[in-house]
Structure formats: structure tokens, C-alpha cells
Design a protein around this nucleic acid. Structure first.
Length: 901
DNA sequence: TTCCAAGGCGCC
DNA sequence: AAAGGGCGCCTTGGAA
């Protein structure tokens, strides 16, 4: 009876609107959503309801505009009915005919004159314009709530925005697309083209745009230095409708997008590039990403607007002299233009701003939507022009030498780097989900074991602790520190005892009633006046793992021992829990990986110092080897026949510091090679120096064949404590750690910490001087610089509190070191990317973790590729190393990330 | 129901 | 008075 596969059998379609309140009647379909709509047969309704529901869910979109329903992608339904009615719950009946199109994927079903409004639980997204999340509201609206009147701000914004309409050429068919593309690829070929897409069906907080999201429209605005492109009748901006069967129209633009000689600028290129590539179009001709330009211009815009298109284009410091027309119609957020507030019961407007999904806006508020999305590409081009001219006026100093402008820097480094990052995102990493689900079982079991242990102990002192949430810091704090006074706000104390609502695990059963969802428990302090020296920023005692482990107030003896074990169990729960929820679970999520089982995180140049950051998911914070109790890195594998190369720099930041400060002692130590921390320890302590000179210990030892152990002890064994201190200082000093902080870490007096610091600086005076210079720069020019000449800005110190001032000074010391290391890592990646031999062999970059890169390629060439990668990384500046210090690189190849470290 | 800040923790 | 730089993201619990 059912026809599978081909849709050519479809003649009629039944649309059923089902009221939630009548869910038991008629169809036997129960669901919480307000309406159900779907393709239905006219026979055997009852028994096929479930099947129908399953099928309807496969429809990618059912949309409404005015009084029409649109069902797109009907072809996705494999089992389709033959004879159909359309019935509304009111009893009215509609019949419709649908002519199947041979081009199935563009099929659209139209049913007219259905009077109802519908809402769908759709996730949608504006083309992700910026760092700040500007998500459209998810709306599961029941009962179509009344909308509050539009605010004056919105009205004005809409009025101003509407003036854009006359300038927009709406392209909604293949024919007009062809003529526009003809102009773009010939007459206007040499213009700069700003492009922007709007995308539906994606939740950017959880999903990668690689193989997710549906382009519903895009706009192109083109110009050169003195004119804008003209598409006739004063139309200067192109807006292309891709919704409801516009895929063919989009495909017409392939020659434009794919032409590497046609220069395109984007605001957040990565996102748009991926969603367009999802249609099989390989975007080329990347010319600039205005987000990166803005970041290069000023990397400290976290406050005041951030890097969103709206924030940037409305900032006169960024836009300079804004063209008049843009002053009037600056970009406003989607919420301002299209958002609305619900009317509350008391008649007043609610606070939460709701919004229709973007594809609904495109149909229902079409003219405004066209203006809105067209303005994005217009703004992007203006932003590009403004930032370009600003960067052109900013001098570029490369490792101390003048080198043109910062726009030259962009062209040489960040433009290719931006393109490379997109390539890496597209590649993604293969994840072994089977392995993850195995270790998940182990982790969950171990967590339960530890939790039971802790609960058993705690409930001896506080009975209700049996039911507490051991993952809640509030509850833990109550248990250990009830009654304690806040450190920052004298007078405020944590109550001795507190009742807390927790989910009922089922053990609480009320007589004659349903098992309640929640229960209340009484938590009180199980210990008197517990001493701690770790506090949170707001003044309450910290209950972090570190803080808990150092608690030792339960006295000695059996009780004390028990307490120690219990606290250890508690720490274990927390750490296992964070491994599960941060890594084991998200890495298995379907929403991140796509079909091929690869995970595509997004790699962003969005940090203050120029380091990369990664997200959705963050692959840069996977547990490191020693702490990786479940060997999570083993889940990152190479595809069959392939291997991974993992290569990392040794002490990159310290080497950078040595170079930047021209510190002789450090440079010598690196030149001598061997263990840098041992050498630091030797330089700090006379007695170690003596021991080394008298050959009582060895600085380092390279075992000769036949030798099993060194003839005399190694420094790191004989003077382990000193070496550890030296190592800690090596890492801390670049971060600007203070004597007080060191004293706290080491649990020694501040004086002692100061003396140790003095030892470190004793033969590294240049570092001290260099740090002073950075602080002065931060104070006087409000900027410090990296090796390649990127700057980091700081707020004016004159107006800063002493606390803020301290932070600025420490950041000023750290930023050039961290930022230069990022520069080197970037150069290394570009060097690898440029290497023709690696490409030939089939190796490609997958990920960077600050001083480490990961590549994948054919196993048979792994060793050769590894040596090339090492070469690239040790000479990352076009085959040379401009530093006064060698760049040490360690590389391995293996089948997974864990084995390759 | 949804949003937000705080606290915590993973990485380099 | 506080006192290590740079990230992303999880859970909680209270507020809207």
C-alpha cells in the first residue's frame, strides 16, 4: 500500500492540524506541541498514526507564510500516500493537487487559504555575525500569545531600515540569478564583494556549521574605491532568496563563489564558508574577514560592543567618518527589528524578547527581512573599507624592524591563516565513539562508588547528606563551612543549617499520593570552625578540589583518617564528573559529529593575545596524558590507513622570553641544550653549581649503549626540590606571578618566596628590565607588542584601581610572550600548509593546541612527513628561524592522540 | 520555562 | 586589598 522512494506517486496530501487539547481524539497521536502537521494517508488513519508521525518528523521543514503552508523537502518522505484529503480540525476540508516536479529537492507544496497561524520549534540562526551569540529565540509558543506593541526604538529602527529596500535587487529565480552572476563575474569582477548569508536550522551553540544549517538567503554588496556596483534602477545590493526551492538559484552563484580571483570579504568567514560549502560549492577568493581585521586593530573589545557586525559598525572609533546613509541606518540587532514581547497576565509587556525563526521572518516580514539581511553585506563592506584604511595607517614593526603597515601584516599572515583555519575545521578529527561509550561505563561506575563512599561517611554526621547533591558547591560548602563568616563582607555569615530542595531519588514516598518530584533535606555543618585559607572571589570559602584536599581539621586517629578518605572520595567524584560531562559525553554527541564520525570544532582568532581558541567542542582542553585516567585522547584516531602526527614545541614561551629580553643566561642555557629547568636550578643555587662542578651530579645524561644507569646521580633526582621550584618559577615568571602568590602555593613565608625569586632573577637581569619596559609601554602607550608586531591594548592605567592596575601590569608582561608564541605557532602552521611535499603526500593539519599541531595523512609516508613537519616548525619563517634561540620540536606519529604524545 | 552569574576545572 | 597570563564550558541555584 505504501510507496517507497519515489515521490512521483504523490497526488494529494492531507494536512492535519491537531489541537493539543484534543490529542486523544481522532488520531491517537499524543505530543506536547501545540500542533501537528504532516503528510497523511486517507486510509487506516488510526493504525498508521505512529508511522505517520515518524514520517512527518523526517520532513525537514513545514513552514507558513501568510495563509499558506509550505512543505519543503517532501522528497525526504520515503513512504508516501496516494490519495489524500486535507482536513482541518475545525472540520473544513481542503483538497489540493500537487504536481510533482522532476527536481525533487526543490519541491514545494502550497496549500492556500488555511486560516491559522502556526509556530514551530525551530532553531534558527542569523549568519552568526560575531563573537557574541546573537541567537534567535527558540519559540515553542502555545496559544499564540498577544504581542506587546512595538517599542519606539524598534519602530524607528524599522523605519530607517526600510529605506534600504529601494537599493536591493531581489533575486528569486534562476534567470535573474544568471544575469546577476554574469555581471558579477565580468563587469564587476574586480570589485570587492561583501557577502553574507542567513542560515536556518542550526543551533550554533551546539552544532558545527560543517554539514549543518540551511542557507535561506544571502546578500552581496560590491564596490571598489570610488563606486558601488549598479544592477540597474539604482539597485546596488543583491539579495538572493534561497528558501522554498531556491537551491537552484544558489547554485547559479557557484561560478562567483568559486572563482579565486574574485575577492570576497566576510564577517566571520568560517561560518558562511561552511554553510555554503554544504551545498557543494567550494568558496574561494577569500579576501578579508572583518572580524579578524577588527581584532587586529584592537584586540580588547570584549566590553563596548565586541566584534559583532552591529557593535563594530555602530562604533565611530571603528568606522571613522561614517557615510551619511549608514549613520541613519546602522545595523540593529535582529531582536530590535523583529523581536516582540509577550503580554503578561496583568497586561504589561514581558521582559523576554521572542522572535520568529528566521525562515518565518523571511516569509512573513519579507520586505523588512530583505532590508535587514542586505544591510549586513553593505555594512560589512563599509566596515572592511574603514578597518583597512585604519590598519594601513598603523605602522608595522616586525621583530623590531619597520615593515610597512598592519594591513600588510594582515595580507601576509592573517588572511592565509584565516583560510587555513577554515580548512582545518572542514577536515575535523575522527573520533572513536565506541571507545568513548566503553570508558563512559567505567567512569560512571567509579563515580557511583566514590559517591556512595562519601555519602556514607557524611551521613554519619548529617543524616540528610545521604541525599545531597555532591556536585553542588553550595551544598558542599554548607556541609563543611556552615556558620562561617564571609571574608569580604563582614557580618554576612553562612547559616549553620539550611534546608535544600533536591530531586527525589524515589526513596521518599508520600502516603497515598504520587511520588513527589522533590524532597527537602536539612544540611548542617558537620565540623566546627573548619580552617581554610582558600576563598572565592566573593569571600566564601572555596570548595574546589585543591581547597578540600588541604582541609585537615578532623583531628587525627581513626576519625581523621576516615575524613581524609571521604574527602578524597569527594574530590574524585568531582573530577570524574567533570571528565564525563566535559569530554566523554559531548564527544559522543550526534550534534557535533556529522556522518563521517569526524568532529569539527571551530577555531577562532578571538583572544586578547592572538592565541587560537576552539569551541563546539573545545578540543584544546582535552585531558593531558598524566591526568587522563580514562585515556580520553585515545578516542581521537586516524582514519583507516592513516596516522596522526603530533608535534609540539619545547618550552616555546621561555624561548620567546629569552629572545624578547635578550637574556644572555637563558639564551646560553638553551644553546647548551638539555634540561632547561635543571639548568635554571643550577644557576639559582650555589650548592648545586658546586655539585655539578665537582661532578657529583649530572645535569643531563644520554645513555650510551650498554649503560643502564648514570655513573653519578642526575641533578633532577639529587636536587628534586630545587628543580621543581626552578621549574615552577620558569613557568610563573612569564605570567607575572607575585611573591605573595608564590608563598601561598609553596606554603612558605612571603620573605622566603621573595628570596627565591631573587635567585631566579640573579643572572637574568635582562628579564627584569624587559618586564619594566613592558609595564612602561602599557602605561604610556596603552599597548604592548608581539614578535610579529601585533599589539594588545590596555585601558588607561591612570583611571584604574590598584587592583586593575596590577592586572594590567601582569597582562602587559605576559601578552608579548604568549602572543609571540602564538605568532610562531601560526607561522609554523602556514609553513606546513605551504609545504608542497606534505600536500603531495596527502598530509593535512587538523588541530593546533597553542604549541602543538596535529596532522593526519597516509601511514606509509608518516616518517617522512614527520621530518618535514619538524623542519617547518623549527624554521617557521619561510624556512628560517629569526629568533636568537633554537626552536626545539618534538614529534611523534601514531594511530591516536594518546599514543602520539 | 529561561536566563544569568558564580564557582569550578580542563588545557597551554 | 589583593596578589599568575590566556581560553571554553560544565552545573548549580536564584532571579525574571
Amino acid at each position: 500500500m505504501w510507496h517507497s522512494g519515489s515521490i512521483s506517486h504523490i497526488r494529494n496530501v492531507l494536512i492535519v492540524r491537531q489541537d493539543y487539547s484534543h490529542s486523544s481524539s481522532g488520531l491517537g497521536v499524543t505530543d506536547n506541541s501545540a500542533f501537528k502537521i504532516g503528510v497523511y494517508t486517507n486510509f487506516n488513519v488510526q493504525s498508521n498514526a505512529q508511522e505517520w508521525l515518524e514520517e512527518s518528523k523526517r520532513i525537514s521543514s513545514i513552514k507558513t507564510r501568510n495563509n499558506e503552508f509550505f512543505i519543503t523537502n517532501l522528497w525526504k518522505i520515503t513512504k508516501v500516500p496516494t490519495i489524500l484529503h486535507c482536513t482541518m480540525s475545525s472540520g473544513s476540508e481542503l483538497k489540493t493537487q500537487w504536481q510533482p516536479d522532476s527536481k525533487i529537492d526543490a519541491s514545494v507544496l502550497k496549500i492556500s487559504k488555511v486560516e491559522t497561524s502556526m509556530q514551530f520549534d525551530d532553531k534558527a540562526r542569523d549568519g552568526y555575525d560575531g563573537d557574541e551569540h546573537e541567537c534567535t529565540a527558540k519559540n515553542t509558543v502555545q496559544d499564540s500569545p498577544a504581542k506587546a506593541p512595538m517599542s519606539k526604538e524598534s519602530k524607528d529602527a524599522r523605519k530607517a531600515l526600510a529605506t534600504v529596500y529601494d537599493k536591493v535587487l531581489v533575486v528569486d529565480n534562476v534567470k535573474s540569478a544568471r544575469s546577476v552572476v554574469q555581471l558579477l563575474t565580468s563587469k564587476y569582477k574586480n570589485f570587492i564583494h561583501a557577502c553574507d548569508t542567513e542560515v536556518a536550522n542550526i543551533d550554533v551553540k551546539q552544532e558545527t556549521p560543517v554539514s549543518h544549517g540551511e542557507v535561506i538567503c544571502f546578500s552581496i554588496y560590491s564596490g571598489n574605491s570610488d563606486a558601488e556596483a549598479d544592477f540597474g534602477n539604482g539597485k546596488t545590493c543583491i539579495w538572493v532568496d534561497v528558501l522554498d526551492g531556491g537551491r537552484d538559484v544558489l547554485m547559479e552563484f557557484a561560478p562567483f563563489f568559486e572563482d579565486p580571483s574574485i575577492r570576497k570579504v566576510w564577517h566571520n568567514y568560517s561560518f558562511d564558508s561552511h554553510v555554503i560549502e554544504n551545498y557543494g560549492i567550494k568558496v574561494a577568493g577569500f579576501h578579508a574577514d572583518t572580524m579578524h581585521l577588527a581584532r587586529l586593530w584592537d584586540s580588547s573589545r570584549r566590553i563596548d560592543g565586541g566584534y559583532s557586525l552591529e557593535g563594530l559598525t555602530n562604533d565611530h572609533r571603528v568606522m571613522g567618518v561614517v557615510p551619511k546613509e549608514l549613520q541613519k541606518i546602522g545595523k540593529r540587532s535582529m531582536k530590535t527589528i523583529f523581536g516582540w514581547k509577550k503580554i503578561k497576565k496583568d497586561g504589561s509587556a514581558g521582559k523576554i524578547i521572542s522572535m520568529e525563526p528566521v525562515e518565518v521572518l523571511q516569509r512573513d516580514d519579507r520586505e523588512m527581512w530583505i532590508c535587514y539581511s542586505s544591510l549586513d553585506s553593505m555594512s560589512t563592506l563599509r566596515l572592511y573599507e574603514s578597518l583597512k584604511s585604519k590598519l594601513e595607517k598603523k605602522h608595522w614593526t616586525f621583530d623590531g624592524c619597520p615593515r610597512g603597515s598592519m594591513y600588510d601584516f594582515y595580507e601576509e599572515y592573517w588572511r592565509p591563516f584565516g583560510a587555513l583555519l577554515v580548512k582545518m575545521e572542514t577536515a575535523g578529527m575522527l573520533v572513536d565513539r565506541g571507545y568513548l561509550s566503553e570508558i563512559e561505563k567505567v567512569a560512571v561506575a567509579q563515580r557511583k562508588l566514590a559517591a556512595d563512599k562519601f555519602r556514607k561517611w557524611a551521613s554519619k554526621y548529617c543524616p540528610d547528606a545521604k541525599y545531597m547533591n555532591v556536585n553542588s558547591d553550595t551544598q558542599i560548602r554548607q556541609l563543611f563551612f556552615g556558620g562561617i563568616e564571609n571574608r569580604c563582607k563582614p557580618g554576612e555569615t553562612l547559616p549553620k543549617s539550611r534546608t535544600i530542595k533536591v530531586p527525589n531519588d524515589g526513596s521518599l514516598i508520600a502516603e497515598g499520593k504520587k511520588t513527589p518530584k522533590y524532597r527537602t533535606i536539612e544540611l548542617f555543618s558537620i565540623v566546627e570552625d573548619l580552617k581554610t585559607d582558600l576563598f572565592t572571589a566573593s569571600g566564601w570559602p572555596s570548595v574546589s578540589g585543591d581547597a578540600l584536599r588541604s582541609l585537615a581539621a578532623f583531628g587525627g586517629g581513626k576519625k581523621g583518617k576516615e575524613a581524609c578518605h571521604a574527602i578524597a572520595a569527594l574530590c574524585e567524584i568531582c573530577s570524574i564528573d567533570s571528565l564525563i560531562s566535559n569530554f566523554i559525553l559531548p564527544l559522543q554527541g550526534n550534534h557535533i559529529s556529522c556522518d563521517e564520525g569526524r568532529i569539527h570544532c571551530s577555531l577562532n582568532i578571538n583572544t586578547e593575545t592572538g592565541r587560537l581558541s576552539a569551541r563546539t567542542p573545545n578540543l584544546q582542553n582535552q585531558p593531558a596524558l598524566e591526568k587522563d585516567r580514562y585515556k580520553i585522547r585515545q578516542a581521537f584516531v586516524a582514519a583507516p590507513g592513516n596516522s596522526l602526527i603530533v608535534a609540539d614545541y619545547g618550552q616555546l614561551e621561555l624561548r620567546i622570553l629569552a629572545h624578547l629580553a635578550s637574556c644572555k643566561s637563558m639564551l646560553d642555557a638553551f644553546k647548551a641544550g638539555g634540561d632547561f629547568h635543571s639548568r635554571t636550578a643550577m644557576n639559582m643555587y650555589q650548592h648545586i653549581r658546586d655539585a655539578v662542578e665537582e661532578k657529583k651530579v649530572l645535569l643531563e645524561w644520554h645513555p650510551q649503549p650498554g649503560q643502564e644507569k648514570p655513573p653519578v646521580p642526575l641533578l633532577k633526582d639529587a636536587f628534586g626540590a630545587e628543580r621543581r621550584k626552578a621549574k615552577m618559577l620558569n613557568f610563573s615568571i612569564a605570567y607575572g606571578k607575585t611573591p605573595v602568590g608564590l608563598a601561598r602555593d609553596w606554603k612558605v613565608s612571603v620573605k622566603e618566596a621573595k628570596d627565591t625569586l631573587k635567585l631566579w632573577y640573579r643572572d637574568r637581569k635582562e628579564v627584569l628590565a624587559w618586564q619594566m619596559k613592558q609595564k612602561e609601554l602599557a602605561q604610556e602607550k596603552c599597548e604592548v607588542y608581539t614578535l610579529l608586531g601585533r599589539s594588545r591594548r590596555f585601558p588607561n592605567m591612570a583611571h584604574a584601581t590598584s587592583g586593575q592596575r596590577g592586572h594590567i601590569e601582569r597582562a602587559a608582561i605576559n601578552a608579548p610572550v604568549q602572543g609571540s608564541a602564538a605568532d610562531v605557532a601560526m607561522c609554523a602552521m602556514l609553513e606546513i600548509d605551504r609545504n608542497a611535499r606534505l600536500k603531495e603526500l596527502g598530509w593535512r593539519l587538523l588541530l593546533q593546541v597553542h604549541d602543538e599541531v596535529i596532522l593526519e595523512g597516509p601511514t606509509e609516508s608518516a616518517d617522512l612527513a614527520k621530518s618535514i613537519v619538524v623542519e617547518c616548525m623549527s624554521k617557521p619563517f619561510y624556512g628560517t628561524n629569526i629568533l636568537n634561540v633554537e626552536l626545539a620540536v618534538d614529534a611523534k606519529c601514531a594511530q591516536n592522540w594518546y599514543a602520539a604524545k
